[in-house]
């Protein structure tokens, strides 16, 4: 990379020696619902979401935490589900693109994405919105540098970055607006 901004690939969930590759039963809490799945303990969360729970919005792009198409939230933190084994989730709450619209920030982002007409092919956009939601949750008025740092792990092959940036700012402004309204009332 020619610039100094790192690609955020950090995930607190690493593979360890404890994965045996053999089948286990797991209880998962996804978008407010409980699911029980029987899968190999080394199965990445991505494939459990896509092919066991039939939530197809979380996308497979690289399988190595490099592109961000598989971004979900685990207890609110953005995580690359393609490099997160199921055995490390425990009782944590998983939120996916299918569930993020139930949060005020997620709903605002989805609306902003449509208002700005961000989408080209759309394959990355679920992951983009998940990273953006995590950003706005901890930072209500992100600067351009904040957006670069938070979003640099999410590749958009079609190059819709200018509109992603615009949509994040629009969603952030909506937030300021509603916060201001709340204060007055």
């Amino acid at each position: 990379m020619p610039d100094d901004i790192p690609i955020p690939t950090d995930t607190p969930y690493r593979w360890g020696e404890w994965q045996t590759g053999s089948i286990m039963q797991y209880k998962l809490h996804v978008n407010g619902r409980d699911h029980t799945v029987d899968v190999d303990d080394d199965t990445p969360l991505l494939w459990v979401l896509r092919d066991e729970i039939e939530l197809k919005g979380t996308k497979f792009g690289c399988g190595a935490g490099l592109c961000g198409a598989c971004t979900v939230h685990i207890d609110g933190a953005p995580v690359r589900s393609c490099t997160t084994p199921i055995s490390n989730i425990g009782s944590a709450a998983v939120t996916t693109i299918e569930g993020i619209g139930d949060t005020p920030i997620g709903a605002r982002l989805q609306k902003a994405w449509l208002d700005v007409d961000v989408v080209q092919c759309g394959y990355c956009q679920g992951g983009q919105i998940m990273s953006a939601a995590a950003l706005l949750t901890r930072n209500h008025a992100p600067s351009d540098d904040d957006i670069d740092s938070a979003m640099n792990g999410n590749i958009c092959r079609c190059g819709t970055y200018a509109r992603i940036r615009q949509a994040i700012k629009q969603a952030a402004r909506t937030d300021l607006g509603s916060a201001a309204t709340k204060k007055r009332t």
Binding site: K56, K59, T96, E98, G101, Q110, L114
Partner: peptide, 23 residues
């Protein structure tokens, strides 16, 4: 006149659309 993408509302909600989502 600018018309937003017809599938975009499904895209932003993560609904299945792509080849890889086929069952």
């Amino acid at each position: 006149h600018s018309i937003p993408g017809v599938d975009s509302s499904k895209v932003v909600r993560g609904e299945p659309l792509f080849g890889i989502d086929t069952v």
